[in-house]
Design a protein around this nucleic acid. Structure first.
Length: 1028
RNA sequence: GGACCUAUAGCUCAGUUGGCUAGAGCGCUACGUUGACAUCGUAGAGGUCACAGGUUCGAGCCCUGUUAGGUCCACCA
């Protein structure tokens, strides 16, 4: 009847089989089920820039674990998969590759062609990423895969932008960006690097003038590294308490090179009395600090540079010159006018564009912003009143601090890959002028009640204003110009065409990636469409897809989500913004819990990343150790306090020995044209390895990066496999009769008691996101209790016809529950074993016999009666274990073969003696020892090894073998320990301070252990005397 | 510069509102392949809880400071 399992678990076949089987059975799908509670997790959308790494693997493992667990608890569990277009990162990757391989820049091929290439890249990596997720066992609803640039998400982006525009949350403003004058583009902060270069530090002075603009004879001195910015100075700044200048505050100076008068202001944040002359020139349009100062003091911002790095018309006689040429000319002119004071050489930090390797210029440009005050406040309230709870709680501070700044959110990016900003603009001269054939411009907008909402707002007479179109007039870049800006809602293609016909141009910029990912929790569920369920991947149907008449049930049912699982570095960028947009669009938070998990570090404590050369591909590990082993290990490391340090090594392709990775390996780069290699210490052969700095030679043996840490999980899986294998080999004749309580033996009651406690604890730990604790609890139960004790104890019963049925039934019940408890952690091996168990024991249970589910994935999460927990029995069992260990120790001490039978005499109370007689067969079974006698009146046999426990003393007669001196020494040592402890306890109890101040139960506990120890000391002393 | 986190066995980490002799896995040592498992079993060695003060009857845990490391944010005329 039994088909035997192989000796070791073979993961690959099981994984392949069950990934497709689960999907085809639709177990991963989630659809609205009104009679059940939902459980929703939205994946932290991975970027399509590249393949997943260990950080994603940890993130995914945790989400899948929660999803599988909740599904087994009977929730309709949705895990929503998808990917992020990741604007800057993806465009940069594709552009870099294009430049390296074909020597082309984006300007060479144009916007449409570049975007097309990026789509191709996205398609390739999306497939790869989704496949990786499937390989780690992710039970996502694959019918619902979303991408931030797909139609559903794009619609949500357009709607949100439009809604915010109408509500006055979106505004146009100036902002300093990192400008690459070579590529003529803005560059993100993380694409900028700083290098110290040899530069100059010039000192000049500006003459102070009186109210009539005439020189007063006083000069104010300052230093700068960029004299050309003088053309754009709009103030000179001093510290408010700097006595050298206090009398000058409020006066003006004249810029000698262009004659402009600018004020002397006081600003404690910008000026530093200790630095230089204490006075600073302020150029808000060309320096980040000056910009901030300019905002604080409402200074004019004069941009003096063109996009190509030449000086613009604001520069007067210097206009048209390159900024560096102008710098020399301005120094010369200042010298000529007598305002040059000196120059010194100095190392100055210079920012460079990573892509063009040319210096970055801070450049003032028009950008779009989201006003954050009210929105940020709403998101803060959600956390402070507990609608959103963050685990571990300390991360709430990060969230609150950041939102508390309420800094406006710059949402425009000078890129081509992303959601195009839905604004069309046209220059007009007068706000009342006709802006186009059908677009009539009026000076003001009135709402339904006839109140003026915003001056300068316009509307289109034939279009319902708040439905499709909103507009605003702003000042153009050139003085005197007005710019008419039209914001168009989603789904108004006709209108867009008309605007273009009317001479409007769409804003070339795209939205910040985070603008779309902020909408992820509701956009993926189909918002803003309230009428229809969101579309599924082509060819897929929901169970009730014909129910559109009831509106968007998917959104109603799955929003708000249950928990967001993510890492701490995007609490601000992503988590906070999701809460904010969720409240804004949906009127409710996007999730109730946020679980912040640890980050994966390498053996040196650095965060893991491909670019550092310390990354690990989860598929390498899965290939080597199996998915379950990887998941189980990761979960075991996933606690509340620390990041996960994961030392990695290179696995020798010749002999599989692992060479630990060091900092040296991470930095190894080709020298003299030769690809670096490592010599294996085990077999002496050379191998190459993956690295960000080079590609291994074709055909060369390449090591994969692995970590021995995962043997923890692999060994555990093997243990579980073999314990089950043993049980399955002994299930012949299994019958599913109800178990009568009286049929259960001590070990049965014990393991059921322990199983119940374990199931309770694991459930509680999962509720608290304590994955490390949950993992260790299950492992300890499985290995140290079930395998080491229970399985060993039932072995004789399984060979005994009469005793077998009850033992089989209990064994089946324990394995049944164990597989269920373990399934969220190790889905594949538990499913393999479950199927096997279903063949051998399809109906199982204690009092109630039930037919097992077709798959452990859809089985009910264990819920055992607390009546099974028996503390007194567990305590008795512990004594049994201690005696067996003590006898084994005696064997070890005297090097007696495990095969040699021994005898045991126990001196103890009659009550304890009875308990011991009841389990006497286990002394024989587990220690090959016959319990000869037990009781108060036993006579210690001569020539015996002995041991003393809390409430019993044991004697093992060893004719001629016993070393009395050693026995005495052993007991003496124990005696001494007891005496030390007793002394300590007595001292404590003698102190009135302790007895008075410590809580009653603590004092009581001390008294109790003191009594016990004194009794044991008496035994040990007596035993020593007996030996003499 | 600000905020947060970390420091416990050779390595990677647990350690609950302070309470009796600080735990686990790996590694190490000795012994062991009788039918679940050598990816195993039995037993063992191994800790000045980073350092210095303080609070307390009592501190790995609380407070202050120091040192080292990490992360995020800001800043660097």
């Amino acid at each position: 009847m039994t088909t035997e399992l192989p000796k070791t678990y073979e993961p690959t076949a099981a994984q392949t089989r069950w990934i497709s089987e689960w999907e085809s059975r639709g177990y991963c799908n989630a659809d609205p089920q009104p009679d059940r509670e939902s459980h929703t997790i939205m994946i932290p959308l991975p970027n399509v820039t590249g393949a997943l790494h260990m950080g994603h693997c940890l993130n995914g493992t945790v989400q899948d674990l929660l999803t599988r667990w909740r599904r087994m608890q009977g929730r309709e569990a949705l895990w929503m998969p998808g990917t992020d277009h990741a604007g800057i990162a993806t465009q940069a990757v594709v552009e870099r590759r294009m430049l390296e391989e074909e020597g082309l820049t984006r300007r060479d091929i144009g916007r449409d062609a570049l975007v097309e290439r990026i789509w191709k890249w996205k398609d390739e990596y999306e497939v790869r990423i989704l496949n990786q997720l499937k390989q780690i066992g992710a039970s996502c609803d694959w019918r619902r895969v979303r991408f931030t640039l797909d139609d559903v998400c794009s619609k949500a982006v357009r709607r949100t932008f439009f809604k915010m525009f109408c509500d006055g949350y979106i505004f146009r403003g100036k902002r300093l960006v990192n400008w690459d004058t070579h590529l003529q583009t803005a560059v993100a902060d993380d694409e900028v690097y700083t290098e110290d270069i040899d530069g100059h530090f010039w000192t000049f002075n500006y003459p102070v003038v009186d109210d009539a603009g005439q020189p007063t004879g006083r000069l104010i001195r300052f230093s700068t590294t960029r004299p050309e910015t003088m053309l754009g100075d709009t103030a000179v700044c001093v510290h408010p308490t700097d006595e050298r200048y206090t009398d000058l505050i409020g006066k003006n100076v004249q810029i000698p090179v262009n004659g402009r008068l600018i004020p002397i202001i006081a600003d404690a944040l910008l000026a530093d009395k200790e630095l230089g002359t204490g006075a600073v020139k302020v150029t808000p349009a060309h320096d980040p600090n000056d910009y901030a100062c300019g905002l604080r003091n409402q200074l004019p911002m004069i941009s003096v540079m063109n996009a190509d790095g030449t000086i613009n018309e604001e520069g007067g006689e210097f206009s048209g010159q390159d900024r560096l040429t102008a710098r020399e000319a301005i120094v010369a002119k200042m010298d000529q006018l007598g305002h040059f004071e000196g120059v010194e050489d100095r190392k100055i930090p210079m920012k460079y564009s990573d892509r063009s390797k040319t210096p970055i210029e801070p450049f003032l440009s028009d950008q779009w912003f989201v006003k954050m005050d009210e929105l940020a406040q709403s998101a803060m309230d959600a956390v402070s009143d507990g609608r959103v709870r963050i685990f571990p709680q300390r991360y709430s501070k990060t969230y609150m601090d950041w939102l508390g700044e309420k800094r406006d959110w710059c949402i425009s990016r000078q890129l081509w890959w992303g959601h195009r900003i839905p604004i069309w603009s046209k220059k007009i001269v007068d706000g009342r002028q006709n802006a186009g054939a059908d677009v009539q411009v009026v000076a003001e907008f009135r709402d339904e009640d006839g109140n003026v909402v915003q001056d300068g707002t316009v509307f289109h007479p034939s279009i319902p204003f708040r439905d499709q179109l909103a507009a605003v007039v702003v000042d153009g870049v050139e003085s005197g110009d007005k710019l008419l800006l039209m914001c168009v809602a989603d789904g108004c293609e006709e209108l867009e065409k008309q605007l273009e016909t009317d001479g409007f141009e769409q804003d070339p910029d795209v939205l910040d990636t985070w603008f779309s990912s902020a909408l992820w929790p509701h956009a993926t569920l189909g918002w803003p469409d309230r009428e229809h369920n969101p579309p599924l991947q082509s060819g897929q149907q929901t169970a009730d897809s014909g129910s559109d008449s009831r509106g968007n049930e998917v959104l109603d049912y799955f929003y708000p989500g249950s928990v967001l699982v993510t890492s701490r570095d995007i609490i601000t960028l992503w988590v906070a913004r999701m809460v904010l947009t969720g409240l804004y669009n949906m009127g409710d938070v996007p999730f109730k819990h946020v679980y912040i998990h640890p980050k994966i570090l390498d053996g040196l404590g650095q965060t893991m990343s491909k670019s550092k050369g310390n990354g690990v591909d989860p598929l390498d590990l899965i290939d080597k150790y199996g998915t379950d082993a990887v998941r189980f290990t990761i979960a075991s490391l996933c606690g509340e306090t620390q990041d996960v340090r994961l030392p990695v090594g290179y696995e020798c392709p010749h002999c599989e020995a692992i060479t630990p990775q060091t900092a040296k390996h991470q930095k190894m780069a080709p020298r003299g044209g030769e690809t670096p290699s490592i010599t294996c210490k085990a077999c002496g052969n050379d191998f190459q390895f993956p690295s960000p700095w080079f590609t291994p030679d074709e055909g060369a043996p390449v090591a994969r990066i692995v970590s021995e840490r995962f043997e923890f999980g692999r060994n555990f899986c093997n243990k579980l496999w073999n314990a089950s294998r043993f049980a399955f080999m002994n299930l012949e004749g299994y019958a599913s009769d109800a178990l009568d309580d009286s049929e259960l033996k001590t070990e049965d009651r014990w393991i059921l008691s322990r199983l119940t406690t374990t199931a309770q604890q694991v459930t509680t730990m999962l509720e608290r996101y304590q994955f490390d604790k949950a993992t260790h609890t299950i492992r300890d139960f499985t290995w140290n209790e079930f395998c080491d004790w229970y399985v060993e104890m039932v072995k004789p019963r399984l060979k005994d016809e009469a005793a077998r049925p009850v033992a089989q039934r209990v064994l089946v019940v324990v394995i049944d529950n164990l597989l269920k408890l373990l399934h969220p952690f190790a889905p594949f091996i538990t499913e393999e074993l479950w199927q096997k168990l279903n063949e051998l024991a399809p109906v199982r249970g204690l009092q109630q016999q039930t037919e097992a589910a077709d798959s452990v994935m859809i089985a009910a999460w264990p819920k055992l009666s607390t009546e099974l927990i028996d503390d007194a029995l567990e305590a008795r069992f512990q004594r049994l274990q201690e005696i067996i260990v003590a006898v084994r120790n005696i064997r070890g001490q005297y090097k007696i073969s495990p095969k040699e039978p021994l005898k045991l005499f126990m001196k103890c109370s009659p009550e304890v003696a009875d308990q011991m007689q009841a389990v006497a067969d286990q002394f024989d079974n587990l220690a090959r020892t016959m319990l000869e006698a037990a009781g108060l009146d036993i006579t210690p046999p001569a020539g015996a090894a002995s041991f003393s426990l809390k409430d019993a003393d044991g004697y093992v007669p060893l004719e001629g073998l016993v070393d009395n001196t050693a026995e005495k020494a052993k007991l003496q040592k124990q005696k001494q320990e007891l005496e030390t402890q007793i002394e300590g306890s007595e001292k404590k109890l003698a102190s009135p301070n302790f007895v008075d101040k410590a809580p009653e139960h603590v004092v009581e506990a001390f008294r109790k252990t003191l009594t016990e120890r004194k009794a044991q000391l008496e035994s040990v002393t007596r035993m020593i005397e007996e030996l003499s």
